[in-house]
Design a protein around this nucleic acid. Structure first.
Lengths: 348, 348
DNA sequence: TTGTAGGCGTTATCAA
DNA sequence: TTGATAACGCCTACAA
């Protein structure tokens, strides 16, 4: 590996490195003749500035750190897709790291990212993260941070989320309007903001239609584990059993579907199923599962934009706000492929 | 953002930077007393070496570049998962880039990665990549490259693939042994190595069981497009229609399943379906789709190991070889959850 | 045992 | 218009 430097160019052209540097950057104080000479030679030998040297000099790496609970997850890989699209356009690269849904690893990972001199951090909190004070400390040192999806109100950073409340409300409302009365809800860990919001949307929809809020129909599962089956079984063994499931995640929805299939329950004739999800394959397998789709890619894009804006901020920035992106309700009917997509307005 | 340097430590302790540097690295030529002093102070002020400065000095970035056709894909995100696991253990970070199944973008992306001074490259070729001479040139400059999944025999680099032939053979054999006679095969673009291997496995299985190789049952689809439906429809409209589908990718398998569902075809009673895949959700939705599962994570791990070995190679390395990882045949029967996993031996 | 000086590739300041 | 020098943070040969 050769790697041409400005020093090489200078030597070849009998110019000082500073002249070469200036010529390459098109500085006005270099004679057109010299400029041309340098440019042409650089082109010819395929000169590329060394970004590491630049990073050292400018004290910035042009790298964004992304920390997600796990990469091998449809939602997060789509978010990352959105992040990358923006990042590359703006000349940044992306280093992706995983917390594996583990609080301690999240702390270590964040530390690693900072040590690695990323210019800013995009984070979706692990499901075990109760305490964000370590992030708060970082943020107070003016380190650029943007949270997405799994956010925390304790942090005064930009937060990008789907309209979880609105999506859950719409899903529940849809089920009610289709005659469902006993709607089970399986959520993810209760202390996650997204869980609370989805539960609230569910609850408020019931309330609006004057249906009882039945605690026995509400369950929560941990992430990264496979404990859905017994919970679904348990719910189905109630008398009367639920006539619909609204699940707060794609994995849970699919687990739910598996149990229903196994028990020979017709979906959605006997039990309707609607998941808060973004699984592309659900599209292909549909019907019978309806979904509230999260704008994963847009979340990533907006998060990256916000972060880069803060990284490059020269003047005062507007205060950090929470950006809520609308979800889409996709209703898949059992018969044929009739599919109805409803773009939901953002809830207040 | 503060960021302590050895210079700061030296100033605080009245030592030269070299002494601090040596003390920190535990050099034998520093007095235990000084060492302790430095270590303790460094610990107290939370000193972290600047990796960028190190990179500049050592002319290595400790970053692996990973180039995949797309991130938002189950297979690749699992591979990346495997890569990360190894990389972090060995002190490397991973920058992920996408070719978007586009040859020109692949070239640009590889160039960007090299410009960015990654220490080596893990690549799965885009489906449009016919010509790998640009990689060959890079490889001949001794730049460490490892290919995985979408590989090319024209490159003399390590190549990590699933046992595509063996998996396809086993899948086809399984269908035959269960009485299927007209097995349709839908593959991906023909010039991809994985396509050829899977097709060969399919063909050889037919041959071994003395079934005809019927060209009209063979189709290919482009990646990243949604043109599966008409193809499946077309195949089903044959007389007699196929009694089984063997598809070379997860997306195709799911598209296939959607069409079968739409047409009310019972799976697998009327038409069996087996996909070369790694979709985790297929597990949850099963039955009725059987799968040949690729060891995605292991592919990533092995690829990363190979690459790091080559990056850090001090002495002569063994010649580049192709590593073929066994697949797993997972048969999902229609009734109940009876599921049979068969670990396939690697084919020759 | 510790300090000095030089260099990794680049740019900015100052001098010529 | 161009060149010499210093600096970013770290390491190491050489000197003391």
């Amino acid at each position: 590996m050769d790697a041409i430097t400005i020093k090489d160019i200078g030597r070849a052209l009998n110019l000082s490195t500073s002249t070469v540097s200036r010529a390459l950057r098109g500085s006005y104080e270099i004679s057109p003749e010299t400029k041309r000479l340098v440019m042409e030679y650089a082109e010819r030998v395929n000169y590329r500035p060394n970004p590491i040297a630049l990073s050292l000099k400018e004290n910035r790496s042009r790298v964004l750190g992304v920390i997600v609970p796990q990469i091998a997850n449809n939602f997060f890989s789509q978010v990352i897709n959105g992040i990358e699209a923006i990042a590359y356009n703006r000349g940044y690269h992306v280093i992706i790291m995983q917390s594996h849904e583990n609080y301690e690893r999240e702390i270590i990972t964040v530390q690693q990212a900072v040590d690695r001199k990323v210019d800013g951090l995009l984070i979706s909190l692990s499901s075990q993260t109760h305490d964000v004070s370590y992030l708060k400390a970082l943020h107070e040192k003016n380190f650029p941070i943007v949270l997405f999806d799994r956010v925390s109100s304790e942090l005064d950073t930009p937060q990008i989320i789907a309209d979880n409340y609105g999506g859950a409300f719409a899903a529940t409302e849809h089920l009610i309007q289709n005659g469902r009365r006993r709607i089970a809800h399986i959520g993810i860990p209760t202390y996650l903001s997204i869980t609370k919001e989805r539960l609230a949307g569910y609850r408020d929809a019931l309330q609006q239609y004057e249906l009882p809020y039945d605690e026995t129909l509400i369950r929560h599962v941990n992430l990264g584990q496979h404990e859905v089956d017994p919970i679904v079984d348990d719910l189905l063994n109630q008398t009367p059993p639920p006539d619909a499931f609204f699940t707060a995640s794609d994995r849970v929805a699919l687990g739910c579907m598996a149990v229903l299939r196994r028990r020979g329950v017709a979906i959605p004739e006997q039990v309707a199923l609607i998941g808060f999800t973004n699984v592309m394959v659900a599209d292909l397998l549909a019907p019978p599962m309806s979904t509230v789709e999260q704008p994963a890619q847009e979340i990533g894009q907006l998060a990256a934009e916000q972060l880069i804006e803060r990284i490059e901020a020269k003047r005062q920035l507007p205060p950090a706000t929470t950006h809520k992106l609308p979800t889409r309700l996709i209703v898949r009917e059992s018969s044929g492929l009739s599919q109805l997509t409803q773009n939901l307005p953002a809830s207040a």
